[in-house]
Amino acid sequence: MSKGAGLEFIEKLNRYGGVDAEWIVLRDNEETDPRYGVLPYKRVIEEHIRNGVINLDKPPGPTSHEVVAWIKKMLGLSRAGHGGTLERSLPK
């Protein structure tokens, strides 16, 4: 498989992440075997969910921990986590 689609996807990542660095190419003749792995946006939906992240606008009230537990249940996942603010819930 030509590496074009993968490198194009990586370029998109750089644009989204605000990385404007240049590439240093060490081996340009290297291709990638289509029999192994998959383009990240071509994963089947179950795989896409398992390898996914959500930029979630958490409602005030429930803790990040609780929201993660709900989402795990909604999607039937065994593992999920969050990278959120450090803020304990207020005593009720």
Partner: peptide, 22 residues
Amino acid sequence: LRRIILPVEVAVSHLPKIVIRD
């Protein structure tokens, strides 16, 4: 769902990158 759930790679998109051989 594909519009809402982003590939995990997006979460590291701001980092310097190294692309490796198969």
